[in-house]
Amino acid sequence: MEPILAVKNLSMNFGGLRALDRLDLDVNQGEIVALIGPNGAGKTTFFNCITGIYTPTEGDILITPPRNSVQRINGLKPNTITELGMARTFQNIRLFPKMTVLENVMIGRHCRLSAGILGAVFQGKKVRKEEERAVTDSYAVLEKIGLAQFVNDLAMNLPYGAQRRLEIARALATEPFLLLLDEPAAGMNPQETQELNELIVRIRDTEKISILLIEHDMKLVMSLSDRIFVMDYGKKIAQGAPREIKSNPVVIKAYLGEEFHA
């Protein structure tokens, strides 16, 4: 079976700086894949390339959405890529601070709705139905993520952990087949991290959504992921199951450090 995301030979240059150097990566249906590496290794650049925020210099990004054929998505606009079914969260939280929690999720529904200007003004039966559906659907997503209690609060007033989860909820609302999480556990306490771990597994198992995540919390990465890719200086230095990565001398030297091994 085709991998749902196959990145081949991806390079990204910023002027003379090569941020990504002939990177290969693939994610299969139903997998949780982690991307790790030291700060500045190019992980977030990689995310920005495959979500359309940057246009890569070289290489191919191929996706195979369920019930669809292979598609090359290099250079497509971010909103088109989201519409195709890849949704992401951000390393530094990027919610819409002055909108309510529900509205944040409803923005995620945006690309699955169709009302235009005239529809919004005249509010015919179809538009009103669609709007009601959007509200109930968004609320359902919030319930799933466990944020229903905050539904009418402004996003900026949420506690930190809840803001992180709201980003995931917003991404889920776009109905992705692949969810890209950029350091979802950053700044979380151990209990919140534990909850996040359960949440990610639940998303994969019940929603049938594959997950690609960048993370520095090694405990979380090792317990969560099926496969791990390790990057350093824009290059892939290793890939494999958590057990292999843990004992890979190159990875230990570049990233994990000796004490982790102990």
């Binding site: 909103n79 919610l95 601070p97 923005i107």
Partner: peptide, 27 residues
């Protein structure tokens, strides 16, 4: 009516965070 519609929400999202707004599928 516009303000509380799909279009109006997209405008507000654009005001709040342009990059996130695009990443959430808004043109």
């Amino acid at each position: 009516r516009l303000q509380h519609s799909r279009i109006g929400r997209a405008w507000i999202a654009l005001r709040e965070d342009e990059i996130a707004c695009q990443a959430m599928g808004i043109d």
